[in-house]
Design a binder for these strands. Structure first.
Lengths: 210, 210
DNA sequence: CGAGTTCTTGACCGTTCGGTCCACCATAGG
DNA sequence: CCTATGGTGGACCGAACGGTCAAGAACTCG
């Protein structure tokens, strides 16, 4: 009944996200957003509201997508403990992309805005709780598979793994070289996820424990 | 020979540092800096140069002070391994101060400006290398004291400890409660610094540890 | 006590910020 | 083909930005 939109909302949010990711919230101007989206101010404001709302939309999209990836990455490997090991190396990324070390958008946003914007802080808190729960499920699976000691609290180990992962993410932002980063990630993985395959009761398809 | 300064440079830098720490670089305006220092624009510019240089001065002061604290904290405990354990709990802070969770100024600055300002990135890289070396020395001492396995590379363990500490710092910024944070720090400490007092050759004069 | 020098203050500058508004346009339904 | 409806792009706005400058104030030295 009227003129249709000339842009794809998802593509715009993607471009916006990349911009905020590269430069941060405060250092991104509306002109930047117009440039990367190709849209005029009027269109942006009509479609998304002001800068902050647009940022929150992009951030929510990022975290949703991230959780999807995480769910898949945790479920995919046959052995859960391998998924947990990869968790620590994942932030290092492919050698191929060679993109700038820009860390995690949510972590960056939390650092930049956590003090000033309660909504960003709350979103970060919720997101990391969900992440912890996902990792905790995977830890529990690794326990059932006999690759981790069964006694420990899965959530506690999940929190330790998440903290270690965020530490790796941050160290990568300081310009640490890939080799050192990889070695550190493996070292952390070895200490947080010790190899129990030796003293494990050897039934790998053990599904029920209490 | 001329009018003396009416302010103490160190006090001004301290106030500036607190402001940048609370709000970040981009979100701090010259008006904020004038307010917290009590100085006029002219004085600030005459004494320190522009906003960026003032920020870098404050940041360097912070890291220098931090390294002094770290050196002391690592040297103070009779047993080096205890110093390393405290390293992970230190970011949680006193229950008394109850200040806002604002993390580490250098970490925040690295996240906000690391992509855009090579000097900040280089400073962060240098600083964390120094920190790694300090922790590595402490690890080596713990090895000599028989509290850590002697075979491992001290620097490698230092990097793992530093990454874990930064992870704790970050998780505290997400609004995680103190109890959970403390539990996570202790869990990480237990896994990265396993208790070797049992199988240690008993040549050191070990005073009782509770 | 006067001259010389530095520090302080706040007015001022051009620019850029986020945000609003409106004239114009492309489309779908009648 | 015409009209109603929503999309588009850019002119425009006041405010705040970082930064400059000049005039006056405070001090030391001769």
């Amino acid at each position: 009944m009227a003129r249709p939109r000339a842009f794809d909302e998802e593509q715009v949010l993607q471009a916006v996200r990349e911009q905020f990711w590269d430069a941060g919230y405060a250092a991104t101007s509306l002109e930047d957003l117009m440039r990367v989206t190709g849209l005029g101010k009027g269109s942006l404001y009509a479609a998304f509201g002001d800068k902050r709302q647009l940022f929150l939309r992009a951030l929510r999209g990022y975290t949703d997508e991230n959780h999807d990836h995480l769910r898949r990455a945790l479920a995919e490997p046959p052995r859960a403990v391998d998924a947990l090991r990869m968790l620590l190396e994942a932030p290092i990324g492919d050698p191929a992309d060679a993109g700038p070390r820009r860390g995690c958008l949510l972590a960056n946003s939390t650092c930049e805005l956590g003090n000033a914007d309660p909504e960003v802080l709350a979103h970060a808190h919720r997101t990391y709780e969900t992440t912890t729960a996902l990792i905790g499920d995977c830890v529990a699976r690794a326990q059932r598979e006999g690759d981790l000691p069964a006694g420990a609290d899965p959530i506690a180990l999940a929190r330790a793994l998440l903290a270690a992962q965020q530490g790796i993410v941050f160290m990568s932002r300081t310009g640490l070289d890939r080799a050192t980063l990889t070695a550190t990630a493996r070292s952390l993985a070895a200490r947080l996820l010790p190899d129990h395959s030796g003293d494990r009761t050897d039934r790998t398809d053990r599904t029920d424990r209490s």
